[in-house]
Design a protein around this nucleic acid. Structure first.
Lengths: 300, 300
DNA sequence: GTTCGGTTCTTTTTATATAAAGAACCATAA
DNA sequence: TTATGGTTCTTTATATAAAAAGAACCGAAC
């Protein structure tokens, strides 16, 4: 096979879920299904044909009927339905950020593709897209080089974060946006749940952290700021893999700092919000830099 | 042929130039040539072999002799020696930023590659690398979309520029770097030449402008800031293609503003430098935004 | 006359093959 | 013993082919 049908498999799963939820009502027109599944009619028809062959539905032109309820065996495995780019990003970042790979390592495209068992072309695409993040560098006609998550890199990344988030906060308060305020209210509730909850709740913090900073950056209403926030959230997300020490405590503390910022924003108090943000960024930087120092020592 | 030998051709030209400059002295050991030409020995040997076949040199093992002076016909055409990425960038940006292409246009990879007469794989690489600049967007499984240089895009880009350059200037003055100061002194002299010179000198300003802002951003000593400056300089550079109106006057004025900033930096006067920078960015934004408005009107 | 589905055509994604460029090995000359 | 060059092997860059996914056309059903 020259191209894998991940989208097809993903849509099979989505349609089966729709059927589980709504029964036969899920089987509308082909165009309608294409719209709700967010794929082309061609793919939808392939899905319908597949489910027909599997005996889940009867399909003859406009006539679509449900023959039996979907069974677990009808679904494709999650690994087969995620996009290649997603899979590559996950496997690559996990591989790099776990810290087994020393800075200066030469990356061989073919070998990496084999190692991750993912298409070479997709891997190249990922590497190219990932290069501006600064972790890797392409040597034309030669190879890719892993530059590593050095203390300098972390410091520079964080400096930009501080610049962007400070600016975003200013605008968020000066020119409030109803949609953002609503998102912020929802986020506030989720934060309260984490600070009030026990150890388990505190461990859900990383996702919340990413959402908080993304929202803050969106406040700048600037695509470059939002894009950067996505970059940094990837790095920070994988960074959480390293430092499990005092994790629950640290997360509860950070959640409290987030809440202080959120409350100040909702109250429209610019000064208090900026102060709270500055405090939070100091804490976050401290957490990150101590971990990076440890990381750098481990690698040298 | 499955891969073009641009590097080989480029090195043929480089070696011929070396021979023109230094005569037979240019023909050192293979390893030495590889070092000075910045390519592998394999490529150097291919070059030597080629020049041997062309009768320019005699080559037998360690024995290398110059037979005749290089002639214009020995050189390869410049278009054949530039890297594909360079060529693609130039042709694509020229095509897009000339303004013939309306925002919302669907970009077809194959057609573009044919249109530019450049490899498809290289074009894809360029598009992927160029996407974060915000001008184009990939619709997975579908196509690329040209989003266009809209007023919003320009405004957001400029906001980040202001943020970064202000920050860079602060650091440049607070923690002076001898290397940067030296570059700044050289730049000052070049600016003086432009402001003193006539129309012709003023037209050399774009390159100077790029150098000035790149130096300023380097002052932040932050790879993200420096990278962004490269992005913006590409956009601004091609932007100069549009607005020829009052060009010489405008350039002289901008050069004078640069000089005010440079002098304030060299004097270590942070406040004056920031004020001058703010003024210059206002001017630059005014120039850019009026041109973008014109551009947007022309496209709607 | 609008919606729907059968069909065909186009475009992206991926695998494979091949030439260019790089890297390393090793014998030989200085 | 070291620098140099002949040789071989590896890896990247590109072309080509084929399958998946998208887009469009058009007649039939409502």
């Amino acid at each position: 096979m020259t191209r894998d049908n991940r989208l097809f498999k993903a849509q099979v799963n989505r349609l089966l879920t729709l059927i589980e939820d709504q029964g036969e009502a899920a089987l509308g027109s082909e165009a309608g299904l294409a719209a709700s599944l967010e794929a082309s009619r061609t793919t939808v028809r392939a899905v319908l044909s597949h489910l027909h062959d599997q005996g889940v539905i009867a399909w003859d032109g406009r006539d679509k009927r449900l023959l039996r309820a979907p069974e677990p065996g009808d679904f494709f495995d999650t690994d087969q339905t995620r996009s290649t780019q997603d899979l590559i990003r996950d496997r690559f970042l996990e591989w790099v950020l776990q810290g087994d790979v020393a800075p200066g390592t030469v990356l061989n495209e073919t070998r990496l593709a084999r190692q991750f068992d993912l298409p070479l072309a997709g891997l190249r695409e990922f590497l190219i897209r990932f290069e501006p993040f600064g972790l890797i560098e392409k040597q034309p006609n030669r190879h890719w080089l892993l530059k590593g998550f050095t203390p300098d890199f972390a410091a520079e990344m964080f400096e930009v974060r501080r610049l962007f988030e400070t600016r975003a906060l200013t605008r968020l308060i000066a020119e409030p946006d109803p949609a953002l305020t609503q998102r912020l209210t929802g986020l506030r509730a989720d934060h309260l749940a984490v600070t009030a909850g026990g150890r388990r709740a505190a461990l859900e913090f990383p996702a919340l952290d990413a959402r908080f900073h993304a929202l803050l950056c969106d406040g700048a209403r600037n695509r470059f700021v939002s894009d950067f926030s996505r970059t940094i959230s990837i790095i920070v997300h994988y960074h959480y893999l390293w430092t499990k020490k005092d994790e629950a405590d640290r997360n509860r503390h950070a959640a409290a700092e987030h809440l202080a910022i959120i409350d100040a924003i909702l109250a429209g108090d610019a000064q208090a919000a900026q102060d709270a943000l500055a405090r939070h960024l100091d804490t976050a930087w401290h957490t990150l830099s101590t971990s990076v120092d440890w990381q750098a020592r481990g690698q040298v």
